[in-house]
Design a protein around this nucleic acid. Sequence first.
DNA 1: GGGTGGGGATCGGGGAGCAAG
DNA 2: ACTTGCTCCCCGATCCCCACC
Lengths: 339, 339
Amino acid sequence: MSGNGGDRGRVATIFDVARVAGVSHQTVSRVLNDLPNVRPATRERVVEAIAELRYVPSQAARALVTRRSRTIGLVATGLPDFGPASTVRAVNESARDAGYAVITMSLAGAEVPSLRSAAEMLIRQAVEAIVLVVDERAALRAFDGWELGVPLVAVASANRDRALRVAIDQYRGARAAVSHLLDLGHRDIRHIAGPAGSMDAEERLRGWQESLVEAEAPLTEPLRGDWSPDSGFRAGQRLLADGVPGAVFVASDQMAVGLLHALATAGLRVPEDVSVVGFDDIPEAAHLSPPLTTLRQDFVGLGQDAMAAVLAILQDDQSPRYPEPRLPQLILRSSTRPV
Amino acid sequence: MSGNGGDRGRVATIFDVARVAGVSHQTVSRVLNDLPNVRPATRERVVEAIAELRYVPSQAARALVTRRSRTIGLVATGLPDFGPASTVRAVNESARDAGYAVITMSLAGAEVPSLRSAAEMLIRQAVEAIVLVVDERAALRAFDGWELGVPLVAVASANRDRALRVAIDQYRGARAAVSHLLDLGHRDIRHIAGPAGSMDAEERLRGWQESLVEAEAPLTEPLRGDWSPDSGFRAGQRLLADGVPGAVFVASDQMAVGLLHALATAGLRVPEDVSVVGFDDIPEAAHLSPPLTTLRQDFVGLGQDAMAAVLAILQDDQSPRYPEPRLPQLILRSSTRPV
DNA sequence: GGGTGGGGATCGGGGAGCAAG
DNA sequence: ACTTGCTCCCCGATCCCCACC
């Protein structure tokens, strides 16, 4: 059912188009590249010939001579969670709008060797830039002092870094979460953090700590999860072993799902017994029991920022300025209440 | 801080490597392509020269002459939900293991024009095959009778189709869900389906209907959602307007989250008043209240099947056989109970 | 002088043919 | 027989120079 088109696999070249259109290959090239000095009628004939032959210019040949692949690379680590997946998607769409194709390398872990080999594979594919969507600080370090030969844009919330970087301000988001609880009169606010080594987790943890210190509220040991609901559940159980806190700031909505489960299992009500604030605003957040108060992140905007940065570098080659981090937005629902 | 390596942008070619290694470019090429008849000592010198010059073969030049880009295309539609995102990820990893780079085109909608232009962009990039990760039947039809020139593998659950296709058996999964409820003694089993036009939704709907018919249980009008928790919540409200059913089979866990919310809001308990079965087994499912009984799909295995099919075609060029659809697995938790 | 054609170099490798160590 | 080098063409575009109308 799949006729080979009869051409025995041979595809049309620019010369075939020229012959059919009755012009020179030179003129076809002018049309292809939108160069001036082509009479409309001539252009028309060329366009028709292209359609008739179903001619597709060889990207390889063009890339060879122009030294531009019209392609960028994307390295993503971790699980395909809602946030990163949305950001990756947005980078993809923005890139396409700008005429770039995106080659994606997704890695389960963030080991330096696999990161490097992924990047090398991208370099071999002649990508013009690489976008990193990573959360692990170690993943970023894999690129430290490594001259790739192409610009690198990191989507990462490291608080100090010389590399070009776009981010959402996790620190201020966390402060907003804790402020909200403080404003409600809570003092014993515990924290379920993300995994050690996660830049987002560290920034949120720092925001939580500093807010408590400034408010002179008691500082406790944070619990650790790995972003998964399972880990949130287990952290919740460990947390309850220390007694019932007035409020918990959870570093992600997914972990909050697990925490809510642990609280319910222990016979505790939210928000009557415990107030809970999450982070991310995943689509499920509004429908948990109770609906979760959380911090919304603009993952799509983040991806767009990343691609905008890439385009800026590709054009000017200078300008190490990057956009201000976006601010998460507090979404009030029903999982918190005054003391 | 980004020294240009001193080479003024010029990169090493195969001839540079040959000169440094003191051999001919011919020999370098032999080494690069693992051809026989190269003395180990010579190979060694070449490898060293490559490392010293940080030489990277030009993929463009190689593709030009070999007519192989070592690249495959991936078109994905819809939101970056857990299932599709996991599958896409798995395709990426399997491809990398096989030495292929993946160019991804993600589309929010599934309109024919954007699908076609995405595919054309992939063709221009000279991909050797295209993988479709789509749910909308219309998206599949955009490729009907269109001779792309490259093999196409669809990850889609259409029940009748001549294209090469890998899938999870949605129909049988739905039957397992309904059987479970039937076995518990339920007779009035309602269904919250996915959006019209979704192949997965149609298959699950069909499984629900046929199971009920065979069991001579009452058939009702299914509700419709769009996979989102919000839509599940609204469908739940509409459903309750008809009265309280004994059980509900929801076409996705995400929508089940919304349904649980609607039921709780109405003062109904799960499973005491209503039994609920979901579909997908998202990571949150085990921690909802109550923990959700659902059908687990092997999204990663699905992605691997897709890539395996691609490789099979790329090698053989024949063999329109494809793997048997995988079966979803019933995961029993606490959202169902006997009448 | 705007529109067009012809010829040829070039990009960076793959590979054939043949000679030679 | 095995290993290696040389020379030259090829892939399919871009682009430059120059001529022509």
